[in-house]
């Protein structure tokens, strides 16, 4: 199986070289939806890390018993169950954040990264590498979310984590927040910029 790559690579490759968002271009929908502010973006990232790691481990434990004909259904049931548990936990312990994320937590179920990792990795690997793979890909996703949200909140609202960082003096001098930053299209443009920067540094990713 994947014994020829080290655990370190399984964990760290998704951060950059094999990033689920900017290299595999998965999970774009939630990147558009939750990155207008930094705080919900980070909670969303953490939720995806948790769900991805645990669903990877669970599916990996079950991988030899799952009937091939219904494997997608089994994966969906596991993912949906975990997402609902995360959503309930947020409602109980981080109520305000759960209000901000509202429907997007439930939409983790349909996040292509999850199904992608379950199908591509957890179905064929032992639990420990599957766990590392889940954490790695979750972090890879969360990094992009945080970068995009950082720029969108900074230029769109002049704040970070809700605290104003653009000084009042600048507003008095005629600076205005860029309303376009807050709208979903800007998230796509930012993701494209990240892809551009990354590929110009990492020549091996450039398509011939």
């Amino acid at each position: 199986m994947a014994d020829n790559i080290s655990y370190k690579d399984i964990l760290f490759n998704p951060f950059s070289k094999d990033n689920p968002v900017v290299v595999q271009v998965l999970g774009i929908c939630s990147v558009l939806a939750v990155t207008a502010k930094l705080e919900p973006a980070i909670v969303m990232g953490l939720s995806v890390i948790a769900v991805l790691a645990f669903s990877n481990v669970i599916i990996s434990f079950m991988r030899n018993t799952i009937p091939n004909a219904i494997r997608i259904i089994v994966q969906l049931v596991v993912v949906a169950g975990l997402v609902i548990i995360v959503s309930e936990l947020l409602k109980a312990y981080a109520y305000n954040v759960s209000l901000q994320l509202s429907v997007y937590i439930s939409l983790i179920i349909t996040n292509c990264i999850l199904m992608g990792r379950l199908e591509a990795f957890a179905m064929g690997n032992r639990p420990w590498p599957a766990f590392l793979d889940g954490v790695g890909n979750g972090i890879g996703y969360a990094i992009i979310l945080a970068i995009v949200a950082f720029f969108r909140e900074l230029f769109g609202s002049g704040t970070l984590f809700g605290y104003q960082v653009v000084p009042d003096a600048l507003y008095e001098a005629g600076y205005v927040n860029n309303g376009l930053m807050i709208l979903p299209p800007m998230a796509l443009i930012l993701v494209a910029c990240i892809i551009w920067v990354q590929r110009s540094y990492n020549k091996s990713l450039q398509e011939k």
């Binding site: 009937p67 091939n68 219904i70 089994v74 049931v77 596991v78 169950g81 548990i85």
Partner: peptide
């Protein structure tokens, strides 16, 4: 693993376990 009986039992058991976990959390 691909017989209908196995598939049926498997999915029913899975759903029962998941359902119980969710009910407990809720």
């Amino acid at each position: 693993k691909n017989s209908n009986v196995y598939i049926l039992i498997y999915i029913v058991a899975l759903v029962l376990v998941t359902g119980a976990a969710l009910a407990f959390t809720s």
